[in-house]
Write a protein that binds this DNA or RNA. Structure first.
Lengths: 348, 348
DNA sequence: TGTTAGCACTCGATCGCATCGAGTGCTAAC
DNA sequence: GTTAGCACTCGATGCGATCGAGTGCTAACA
């Protein structure tokens, strides 16, 4: 186990390195500490800390930088209750969520921008995706004789739409009655049960309203398939180019894989969605990330909820040398605020 | 005016430079040309072309690179009918648009990805935005006692939604009847005329259904404001990080402004939307761009239409040294394909 | 036993300098 | 008008000297 002094030194090294991005020397620490310890003493401690695996030396005559385990220890044991947010920042966070809610989309996008502006890191917000949602409403709006828009509102307030063109032999009228039946019979049904209920109860009723039985079944199947299809949540990015501001990514070849990964929204979603079920705030440091491209990054994520159920994730991606002391409480407050806002709106 | 030979040399220099990103020397041209001209002759011509402003020399003992006017001349006079798309590529473009249309969004996003994959440049697609669209349908779907989703379908097939929370003293029922009235009275109305018609004809009818007259007027005003508010089209990017693949942007400080600009979707929209009304394909080379951050880039845009009316823009952003000979016909085909697809669906 | 001053040592960063080579401009000959 | 030849330019590359921040170790000290 580390002595108190070692912890203090480790902590100072991390704090310094986070700020400067340059290896921290013994003199620097010696000067900053108030327990008048000489550089030589610090050096001894630093050598010990390196042996224990908490520090690293980029090269023989350089200062020390925290190792991955060093950061891990810092995050797990040295940050307890250390919130480095100014009162001003906290009120700014709160005021962000006092606005009227407009579209869900806009809230998510704005949260991402806010986070990235405040931190100079890259923010990721996974749009709300509710698993045990039910079907609220289904509508068909005809655009012309052969095209219509199918609208679906979920109980979580999300709206999905797709354009459908009528197959030969099916009129818009028929399609409208199909949708009317579905709406009447299925509204309130959990999404994942839609198919079974549709097949059980509705098929024959639908076919009564349509001339072509084959087409009727086919069309019904298509609509149901769409309804139950994964409405993959969206990914909102803020400040992706902030990555380029970080000294460790000044080399294009370092930055490129990360930025490219960020463009693959599907992968991003997959990577973050896995943290969702544990309601905890998660910190993934460097190699702790499963994603290869993020091995030089850290990823801090928090889950936000509606009525206590996890529905989405907000997160920050930055270099391993991340300002955890700021980022962690920031995400904490923000996910709380977002949860409260959404809960107020979408829970009865 | 340039001689035929000068044009040929200019053309070869551009072609070479586009490929290699390195200044082109006289020997290179001399070898490639079949009219057995020696390097010295080419050198003379190149000196002339430089004096005329079509070429530049990065430094005294280097080869030549095209100047902005050089590119301009190349694009305007040397590319006529020169389509360097393989037959395979053309069929790939066509097949991209034979799929079923799902959501408009997906089409736009996929077009952007397709373009960026095919070119290694950054693709931008402005989602369809129709100006003289009419209101097709308005719906209110209640989520609970105090929250509902307001849906609007435009005649162009686009769907907009927003969450509304009931003010004190207004019930969901009342709101529903308000929306019903609006729907009955306004559907078919051009968007820009909604406010005047709403105020003229509807205000007093609405107030008959609501207890609180003040609230009624206020609510009506809010809904109308939302309806007529700019439904700003969306911006879809593809391969933004492709920018980093280009040698001219290997330096982070060169790439950063462009990538940051691309993140500001509103600015991107503004910059591209201006080209929309001219149905022509537009080429903006380097400094021809109004946007400062794009002074080292070229922007090629094409408009796509529905029923002959411009509704959106697709474009490519790359270094000034862009493969115009490929990019221009590519955008031409693609905008044509997109226009045809959308027209087939959305025009009766 | 823990702390500290002193000192030799290491190693990246920076600078100057020589070298190399692609490519030019110019001149003279064809 | 075209071309061979040649001196010249200038970025790129490589090498060695120098510099300095920071270390590890030893010996002295409290």
């Amino acid at each position: 186990m580390l002595t108190d002094r070692q912890m203090m030194i480790l902590r100072m090294i991390v704090d310094n390195y986070v700020l400067s991005a340059e290896p921290v020397g013994s003199r620097t620490i010696s000067k900053q500490t108030d327990l008048g310890l000489s550089a030589a003493t610090i050096r001894n401690e630093m050598a010990d800390l390196e042996e224990l695996g908490y520090l690293e030396q980029p090269h023989a005559s350089a200062g020390r930088i925290p190792s991955q385990t060093g950061y891990r220890f810092y995050v797990d044991h040295l940050l307890m209750g250390d919130t480095r947010l100014s009162g001003q920042e906290i009120t700014r966070i709160k005021s962000l969520f006092t606005e009227r809610i407009g579209e869900m989309e806009r809230v998510a996008q704005q949260t991402a921008l806010f986070l990235s502006n405040l931190t100079q890191y890259t923010a990721v917000v996974l749009g709300p995706q509710v698993y045990d949602t039910t079907l609220k409403n289904l509508q068909l709006v005809a655009l012309n004789d052969h095209t219509a828009v199918l609208l679906m509102v979920a109980s979580s307030g999300q709206v999905y739409n797709r354009t459908v063109s009528m197959p030969e032999g099916v009129s818009i009228r028929e399609m409208e009655s199909l949708v009317r039946i579905l709406n009447a019979r299925l509204s309130g049904t959990p999404m994942y049960r839609i198919r079974s209920r549709a097949l059980e109860e509705i098929t024959h009723e639908v076919s009564r309203h349509m001339r072509d039985y084959e087409e009727a079944v086919h069309l019904l199947d298509q609509v149901v398939t769409w309804l139950e299809s994964d409405k993959e949540g969206k990914v909102y990015l803020g400040g992706a180019t902030n990555m380029l501001l970080q000294p460790e990514f000044r080399d294009v070849h370092k930055a490129q894989p990360v930025l490219t990964w960020l463009e693959r929204h599907h992968d991003v979603m997959e990577a973050l969605r896995s943290d969702e079920s544990t309601l905890q705030l998660q910190v993934r440091i460097g190699g702790e990330n499963d994603v290869q491209s993020l091995h030089d990054c850290s990823l801090v994520t928090a889950t936000y909820t509606v009525g206590g159920l996890p529905v989405g994730v907000i997160g920050l991606i930055g270099p391993t040398r991340m300002d955890y002391a700021r980022v962690i409480p920031l995400l904490g407050h923000l996910s709380k605020g977002l949860s409260d806002l959404l809960t107020k709106f979408y829970v009865n």
